[in-house]
Computed example of a mutant assay.
Amino acid sequence: MELHHVIVEKLCSCAKREGMGQITSFEDKETAQDAAVKQLAFMQNSFCGKHEFDITEVNDHFVIGMLGGCDCGSHDKH
């Protein structure tokens, strides 16, 4: 059975503070996609707001990445 993953490309300090894992695995693609959408919404609504995130599908996996990188200087500052 092939697993489908939700992968957080970079764990910013907000993600680390929340105790987020970098990879979460699911048995079916639809469940993984739903989880990625929920995680993206949580990140955009609950984090500090200095970053924006999006989801990219790569080989039946869902990668949550930062848009435009980070220009905050240091993740330790927030």
Rank of each mutant, 00 (worst) to 15 (best):
A41N: 12
G69F: 10
A36E: 00
Q39C: 14
V37S: 02
Q22A: 15
A32I: 03
A15H: 05
I64R: 00
S74Y: 10
S13F: 13
F53N: 02
K38S: 10
K38Y: 06
T56F: 08
V58C: 04
D34H: 09
A36Y: 03
H51Q: 03
T31S: 07
K29F: 03
G21A: 12
T24I: 14
G69Y: 08
I64Q: 02
S74C: 14
S13Q: 07
V63I: 10
E57H: 05
T31L: 05
G69N: 03
K77S: 15
C72T: 08
S13E: 09
E18V: 14
D34M: 03
E57S: 07
E30L: 13
G65C: 08
V8M: 04
V6W: 01
V58R: 04
I7T: 06
D54E: 12
S46G: 08
K10Y: 12
I64M: 00
M1D: 12
H75F: 15
K50P: 13
A32M: 01
H61V: 07
I7L: 05
M20Y: 03
K29G: 07
G69T: 07
V63L: 03
C14M: 07
I64N: 02
V63Y: 00
H51I: 12
M66D: 01
V63Q: 06
S25A: 11
D34Y: 02
Q22M: 13
F42E: 04
R17Y: 15
Q22S: 15
T24W: 05
L11W: 03
R17A: 15
Q22L: 12
Q44A: 09
V58Q: 03
G69W: 05
N59A: 12
